[in-house]
Amino acid sequence: MSEENKNPITDAIESTKGGHFYKEIMKDFRIKESLHGCLNCGTCVANCPAAAFYDYSPREVCQMIIEGDEETIEEYMKGKIWNCAQCYSCKYRCPKENSAADIVMAMREIAVREGLAAEALAGYTRIAKLVLTRGNQLAPDMLSPDAFPDWGPRMIELSSKKMEMREELFEGFPGMNVVDRAWAAEDYTIYEMQKIWEESGALEKVGTVFPFLVDIVQDDMDDKKDEMEARIQEKKAKLEASKK
């Protein structure tokens, strides 16, 4: 893939079709790589686990973008995109190398940005908070059996003794036996993660779904700012010196 690479199919669609969501979707540069015309062959559907259980179709995803069909696009934006398992089976099998998976991903980003994701992300607060305050996505203390009753009786047994078991398992491996994050990521590391979210505009986006979380992150960053920024300055100076 070179940077000048033009995709005649998506370019042609772009110039003729309208609709708000459609225009937003077409701004994502991944779309050009994800659509190369569609045979309507249904290979993607036959391999799609979401199509097996939901009113959802990767063929339709590709077709609605090619057609610029705003009505169907809206239906997907307002709910159906959340059915996709992001397994990329469609991309792997499509004879035209289309990727409904990537189109859906671009659409999920837009859904969050435009405030359409509140329902889909209900129940997601803990993960988002962990990412932004611990630099990890998962922690041993999140796997409480009451949240996963369908995981069976061994899960209950496990949760009562898992900290002792972890201590035994990770003896001699410092930083590995922690409760509130997957490993003992340092404060400085967490600050770097937070800064990436801030600088990239991603934190602002989080605010459309979880405004309180943005406050938590910003307070957390403010608390350690001086010390952390001093360390970053040292790093910058070292990097500059290494370039000379």
Binding site: I196, W197, G201
Partner: peptide, 10 residues
């Protein structure tokens, strides 16, 4: 992939 939170630059 689960939530669409974040973006490609992030």
């Amino acid at each position: 992939h689960a939530s669409g939170l974040g973006n490609l630059v992030q």
